[in-house]
Write a protein that binds this DNA or RNA. Structure first.
Lengths: 158, 158
DNA sequence: AACTAAATTGCAGTTATTACAATTAAAGAA
DNA sequence: TTCTTTAATTGTAATAACTGCAATTTAGTT
């Protein structure tokens, strides 16, 4: 609720109109810790907006991002994930199944960058991404290995 | 040179064959701090291998990655960049022009993750990406603004 | 030189995202 | 409330990075 009100205010400040589609996306994002993709947001609204266009979803996400209302997480090649929590935290993804979790990490040392970088860039943000394999996937893998013949050496993918 | 020899050894260990295309990619990557994309690697080899296929480039990059010879940098939506330096360092990218630089950052505190994460995931790696605007791009932008009429309020994109 | 598994090629397919022109609708003014 | 303006939404086509697969070639061994 707070999130939506905030976004409405921010959109108004920027001279952007409040449309039903925008409201619906604000509400969908409000408190959402599921790191939805554009596709998931599109599907989530499709019931209420049968004519909803993907272009609209992408446009709205772009506007929200520009207003500082979401982080676009570039953590896997295939697609972007969106996180309405723009406070300092990190993420971990399972490289097998794509499971994505927040990491609330307090011990953040100051991230003072080298002077030559600071001279060349004005820094606007950063992201810290961890990669790993989740419990479920590593257990599945063991099963698979148990069932199949001994794999050829050097033939293991990923 | 060292890099190529290392990769040859690693490929042999894994039972992978040493082909001219693979050698050429090893050599192209050796000491390369330009964070090339698959396309750039493809173009770089095209002269010497007129029949080179994109599939081959992707396949080889995948093998090198599995052998621990490159980092795949997922720092921008459009494409992956490849970095043969797999030692601990970070990256910064200009969100306007895509200029990509290494950050050799010593002050890395230990990155001790919360226990619930460690219980759920076996962590294999992490990446730290900074975003910003480079000098050249912010100077260009000033020029642009100077040339154009006063922008309508709230109408500024990006 | 012959053999065999693996690598490369060529090309078609997939999928996330973007571009653009036409239509619709929000929000301020009358 | 209606009118008007300007932005937002829609639909569809295009882009671009990457993947899948069958056919051909080749590295590395015998």
């Amino acid at each position: 609720m707070d999130y939506s009100h905030n976004m409405i205010r921010k959109f108004r400040e920027r001279g952007l109109k409040i449309t039903p589609q925008r409201l619906a996306i604000f509400n969908l994002l409000d408190g959402n810790t599921g790191h939805p993709t554009a596709e998931e947001i599109y599907s989530g609204l499709k019931k209420d907006f049968p004519n909803l266009s993907f272009t609209t979803v992408y446009n709205i996400l772009k506007s929200i991002k520009e207003a500082g209302g979401i982080q676009e997480l570039l953590i896997e090649r295939e697609r972007a994930h969106y996180d309405p929590d723009v406070s300092l935290h990190h993420h971990i993804i399972c490289t097998r199944c794509g499971k994505l979790r927040d990491i609330f990490y307090t011990n953040t040392s100051e991230m003072r960058l080298p002077d030559d970088i600071l001279k060349e860039f004005s820094v606007t943000g950063h992201q810290i991404h961890f990669y790993g394999v989740c419990r479920a996937c590593s257990e599945n893998e063991e099963e698979e290995e148990g069932k199949t013949a001994v794999p050829r050496e050097g033939a293991n993918a990923n």
